[in-house]
Simulated assay, not measured.
Amino acid sequence: MMFRLLGPLDVCGPDGASLPITQHKQRTLLSLLLLTPGNWVSTDLIHETLWVSDSPRNAFGNMKTYVSQLRRKLIDANDLENRIESRVGGYRVFADRHELDVFLFEEAARKGREALQDGDPGRAIGHLQAALDLWRGEPFEELPVAVKQTESTRLEEHRWAVREDLIDAHVALGQHHVVIPTLRALTMEYPTREHVWYRLLVALCQSGRRAEALAAYQTAYRFLAEELGIEPGAELRQLHQQMLTGDLTGPFLRDLRQRQ
Rank of each mutant, 00 (worst) to 15 (best):
T249G: 15
T245H: 14
E194A: 06
V147M: 08
Q260K: 11
L32A: 05
G137S: 07
D118Y: 00
L9N: 14
A185E: 15
Y91K: 06
A131D: 03
P191G: 05
P139R: 10
A216L: 04
L244Q: 14
G126V: 01
W135P: 07
E138Y: 06
L204K: 12
A203D: 03
L80P: 00
W135F: 11
L200H: 13
I21T: 11
L128P: 09
L186P: 04
L19D: 05
C12I: 04
A77S: 14
L45I: 08
A77C: 07
R92Y: 06
G174W: 01
D120K: 10
Q149C: 11
T49D: 06
A213K: 07
R4V: 06
D120T: 04
G13W: 04
E138R: 13
F252C: 08
Q241W: 10
L45T: 12
A130L: 09
W197T: 01
R83T: 00
N78F: 12
C205R: 14
V52G: 12
E48G: 01
D54S: 13
P37W: 09
P37H: 06
K148M: 04
H195Q: 13
E226R: 04
E164A: 04
L228M: 08
Y221P: 00
L70N: 04
A215L: 12
V162A: 01
I180V: 15
A109S: 12
R4S: 15
D76E: 15
E138K: 10
A130P: 05
H170E: 00
R184K: 14
E107R: 09
E81N: 03
N58F: 13
I84S: 10
G126C: 00
G61Y: 14
G112H: 07
D79Q: 08
R184S: 08
V41L: 14
I230D: 06
D165F: 08
A77G: 11
D101Q: 01
V178D: 02
E138T: 13
F60S: 13
Q129A: 07
L143I: 07
I21V: 15
A146F: 13
D101M: 01
Y217K: 00
P8W: 05
T28G: 00
L228G: 01
L239R: 03
G122Q: 09
V171L: 07
V196Q: 05
A131E: 05
D96M: 10
A215V: 11
L244A: 09
M63T: 15
I167F: 08
I180S: 02
V102Y: 03
V11Q: 05
L128A: 03
V162Q: 01
R159S: 09
E212W: 11
V147F: 11
A95F: 10
P20W: 03
Y66L: 11
R159F: 10
